[in-house]
């Protein structure tokens, strides 16, 4: 059964039709939330909330459109709100425990993959809109058209924003992640 048919059935309240749609898109939603939040538990919460909110709002969704951009858009919004509240919490925590070391590994499981992990850390130096567009395009491998739909901007704007984000990323890598820059240059040579 294709996605449009499943969405139409889900709109009519058929929960059984919603499950295969969740299964089809849960990985992309979870991964985007994980990239934005850096915590698997938070990402799981956001992914669950995304699908529950989408279910409630499904009657207002145009069933002829692809579902994934809409879901990713909801997940990005929820993650952004979570980051804000987490940011406030962390700021308070930092004030209370200034003597505590600040550096903690982002994720032990991904530490083995040094290049990817360094790249992820470098991207976290960018503004949130730049992070989002880089994650969608290069990490989730979305085409430009779908990236545009998630961010509700024109395809041309996606390209120009990506170009600017990459330029900033290049500077961050050169300044703060010379190992990654050296490795890339080494590959080139």
């Amino acid at each position: 059964m294709d996605e449009t048919t499943l969405v139409r059935r889900a709109v009519k309240g058929d929960a059984a039709a919603w499950e295969p749609l969740v299964l089809a898109h849960q990985q992309a939603v979870f991964r985007l939330a994980y990239l934005l939040l850096g915590d698997a538990d938070d990402a799981e919460d956001i992914a669950q909330e995304t699908f529950l909110r989408a279910w409630k709002a499904l009657k207002r969704f145009d069933a002829t459109r692809p579902l994934r951009p809409w879901l990713l858009s909801i997940a990005a919004n929820l993650s952004r709100n979570r980051r804000r509240s987490a940011g406030r919490y962390l700021a308070a925590l930092t004030r209370a425990f200034r003597e505590q070391p600040k550096e903690t590994p982002l994720d032990e499981a991904s530490a083995q993959n040094t290049d990817a992990n360094n790249l992820w850390k470098a991207i976290q130096h960018l503004d949130l809109p730049d992070q989002q567009i880089v994650y969608l395009r290069y990490f989730l491998d979305l085409p430009v058209s779908e990236t545009a739909e998630v961010l509700q901007i024109a395809e041309g704007t996606v390209k120009s924003r990506l170009s600017r984000a990459l330029e900033k990323l290049r500077k961050v890598i050169h300044q703060d992640f010379p190992v990654l820059a050296d490795r890339r240059e080494g590959r080139e040579a």
Binding site: E19, V22, L23, Q26, Q27, V29, F30, R31, Y34, A40, A43, E44, A47, Q48, F51, D107, A109, S110, Q112, N113, D115, A116, N117, L119, W120, V134, Y138, F139, D141
Partner: peptide, 13 residues
């Protein structure tokens, strides 16, 4: 970016 190791996707469904 394609080499990123993600945690296993939990049972969201």
């Amino acid at each position: 970016a394609q080499q990123t190791n993600y945690p296993q996707t939990p049972d969201i469904a």
